[in-house]
Design a protein around this nucleic acid. Structure first.
Lengths: 233, 233
DNA sequence: AAAGTTATTATGTCACTACATAATAATGTC
DNA sequence: GACATTATTATGTAGTGACATAATAACTTT
């Protein structure tokens, strides 16, 4: 096939990225003007601009009006993770999904939860613990706090049947999200619920969401032993 | 000021996102055609398209030719992590960065490493262990394999002075990257090098890179106790 | 010489046009 | 009626042109 396709902006991006990676444009270097690159590659300036915008979002280059485009001196490894709702994740592994609510109480927020939300005063929130199962075996243990000011309806939801994870995803869009990962040793309730020997290293995925300034929910999802979170780029 | 600014594509994106978040367009719904939205908001179709492209990358909507644009029914939590080179990470925390090479050998790849690269046959690779320090305290322990077929020059690099992490970032661009996170219990060498009591839960960040089909490097970076990786979106 | 003004330059943005492409619907043929 | 062919439709993409904006350089004024 003598395709002779026009250059897509992604092709231009890949070409420029490859030049950066191959040090044709070295870290700190100033790149040619968009227009010159466009001319060289035989495309329009808008196409180069679209490519540059992507590279700029990706953290590979820095752009300034008049100042031009520079290769960032300290390239970062930028990765995108998709964290699906747990039921979906289990089903995609070809396992039978199960769910168990462990506890459900309205309680005053402890300091740790206040810190995650960035609030100063303790308030009453709905505190839900639940277990997600894959093929009837413990998979992920959820320890969740839900702000009843931004989600009063959740008080009427039967959380023994539907997981708060799912209900929130479907009903409570968020505008801001914090995620962090860390490791903990299994002990006490966590060890018991996950059927993990005391001391086992477990991965925790902590997520906190807001709508505008208002907290929605924060959750510590502690995964079964051996759990691994992966991204392919 | 009677500004009467033109709508930027980011404004259009924010407007549409806000409608999705406010369930004016509910999960699963079909959005109006780009052209209709353009007309309604008083902008060109290209502007709406640019906005939609962003929302589509962000995982909020799904687009199909002819099929139109739909709000994703099960929004995934999509997060972007920046993983900087370790020296930079340490320095950004305001700590003094230190580096120590522990070992450096050419060895046959064990099965686990072959699996990470997706190769069938064992080959000789450079196996480097090194410790990154923050304020003279162990911070991250690196266990790295470097394919000398794609990076023969690395054999001549003095890895007692410069970390392989840094050398590779600066000299070996990659086209594919796998990242995963998991938790391990500190034991043996790892516990000793990180000065962590045996059994302590530690976060491991595993990264593997390729250039084209050719493996470059794979690294298990085991972090000090209490280490936390965060992203804000 | 210091300060303020104007010109220049490179990126940022959008409108409009034209055409490509994929999925579907409508139509025609056997 | 089953199958192949042809429109139709909505998104995907690039090009051109025009103007906005920020940073710098060049120039003037005092």
């Amino acid at each position: 096939m003598t395709v002779e396709t026009r250059l897509a902006w992604t092709d231009v991006r890949d070409e420029i990225r490859s030049r950066i990676l191959n040090r044709i444009y070295a870290p700190g270097d100033k790149l040619p003007r968009d227009e010159d690159i466009a001319q060289e590659l035989g495309c329009a300036r808008t196409t180069v601009h679209r490519a540059m915008q992507d590279l700029s979002f990706a953290g590979l280059v820095e752009r300034k009006r008049k100042g031009g485009t520079h290769v960032r001196a300290d390239p970062v490894t930028r990765t995108t993770f998709d964290i699906p709702i747990t039921r979906r994740e289990v089903e995609q592994r070809g396992c039978k999904y199960g769910y168990q609510m462990i506890s459900r109480d309205v309680e005053q927020t402890p300091i740790s939860v206040m810190a995650r939300f960035g609030i100063q005063l303790a308030v009453d929130m709905l505190h839900v613990k639940a277990l997600h199962l894959a093929d009837n075996r413990p998979y992920i243990l959820e320890d969740r706090w839900i702000d009843t000011r931004s989600s009063p309806e959740v008080l009427d939801v039967d959380l023994t049947r539907e997981s708060a994870n799912e209900w929130l995803v479907r009903h409570k869009p968020y505008s801001r999200l914090d995620v962090s990962f860390y490791a903990v040793n299994a002990e006490g309730d966590i060890a018991r619920h996950l059927a993990a020997p005391t001391g086992t290293a477990l991965l925790v995925i902590e997520r906190t969401t807001w709508i505008g300034e208002a907290p929605i929910t924060t959750v510590q999802a502690t995964a079964m032993p051996g759990y691994q979170l992966s991204a392919h780029n």
